[in-house]
């Protein structure tokens, strides 16, 4: 039951065994809880929380602390080396490219995706076939980053500029139609990083649009009516009515996308594998930890990622507090 399942029936059996095992555990807990007489919440609560606390301590808390500890060790995790891993991240030429690219990602993606999402939400608001129009933009959100990467890799496909060779990637074909020469889109740096960012924008715009559209629809009618009676124009309406009203939603969208972008791994891994100067922290973490086996440096990269997430979250919470006050 705890071994590698290799045949189809083994896999399915093991799956049901796992579900049953956890169902049985829940059953035991419920049974024990029903035995505890009436009013003693404390014992019942302890039982209900036991599996959660156990799994979170072993599966999240301990590994998190352990990673911080290991980030001060060398590649094989046997010698303490102080802050050397961190020094390397912030001075080594290769690592600086990783940091630069991560900065590009985090600065461009949230604003571009939110801008496009907001524009589209306004454009299709109360239009005919609004829900269909929204579904088109939202659909990329449901597929895996890997599939999205394959889709876009095909868009960026390059064929050498020779007679009898036709482009099969749409982007290069458009360049040729416009009279240009085809470009090795995924190899030219830093262009390639921005082309990978496009994929993330393509995925996230639907998220931004959905949240912002809901926020726009929640603006009370009487505010709009009052503004119109005061003779506020379309731009003024957007600037002084819509935008202030949906500001909390915009902050949430921006910060959510920023956090997601910071941790982007699948796109880089699938499209370039981090080569051609497209590496980012999350991908470099994976390569160092599991490919180059420098677990110390890998751990330090994970910690840097964690530290970078914190200010975004704090900003988000602060803005929400302010808007609730």
């Amino acid at each position: 039951m705890f071994t590698t399942a290799s045949t189809t029936s083994d896999k399915i059996l093991q799956m049901f065994a796992a579900i049953l095992l956890f169902a049985a555990a829940v059953g035991v807990i419920l049974f024990a809880a029903s035995r505890v007489s009436g009013k003693r919440d404390r014992a019942v609560a302890a039982l209900y929380l036991l599996p959660t606390v156990l799994m979170l301590s072993v599966g999240l808390l301990y590994p998190g602390v352990r990673t911080i500890y290991q980030s001060f060790f060398d590649a094989s995790l046997s010698n303490f080396i102080g802050v050397d891993n961190y020094t390397k991240i912030f001075t080594d030429a290769e690592q600086l490219v990783v940091l630069r690219n991560t900065a590009f990602w985090v600065l461009v993606t949230p604003f571009a995706a939110t801008g496009i999402g907001l524009l589209y939400a306004i454009l299709v608001d109360k239009a005919r076939m609004e829900s269909f129009a929204k579904a088109l933009i939202f659909l990329p959100m449901s597929i895996s980053f890997v599939a999205a990467s394959v889709i876009w890799k095909f868009m960026y496909e390059y064929r050498p500029d020779q007679r009898n060779v036709e482009q099969i990637g749409l982007v290069n074909q458009v360049i040729v139609w416009l009279g240009g020469k085809p470009v090795q889109l995924l190899i030219e740096s830093p262009l390639n990083t921005f082309l990978l960012i496009v994929v993330m924008i393509w995925i996230q715009a639907g998220f931004a649009m959905t949240v912002l559209s809901a926020a726009i629809k929640a603006i009370p009618d009487d505010i709009i009516e009052a503004a119109r009676l005061d003779g506020v124009g379309p731009w003024g309406m957007f600037r002084f009515v819509t935008l202030p009203a949906i500001r909390p939603a915009v902050v949430v969208v921006l910060t959510t996308i920023a956090i997601g972008t910071l941790k982007v791994f699948d796109i880089v891994q699938t499209m370039t594998g981090g080569r051609f100067d497209t590496n980012v922290i999350a991908n470099e973490f994976y390569s160092q930890s599991f490919r180059s086996n420098d677990k110390g440096l890998g751990s330090a990269l994970a910690v840097v990622l964690f530290v970078l997430v914190i200010p975004i979250v704090v900003y988000n919470i602060r803005q929400l507090r302010r808007s609730e006050a």
Partner: peptide, 13 residues
């Protein structure tokens, strides 16, 4: 705990 990036847990796990 929601804000902890998965990356932080993977090596020890």
């Amino acid at each position: 705990l929601q804000i902890v990036p998965l990356q932080v847990t993977l090596v020890p796990l």
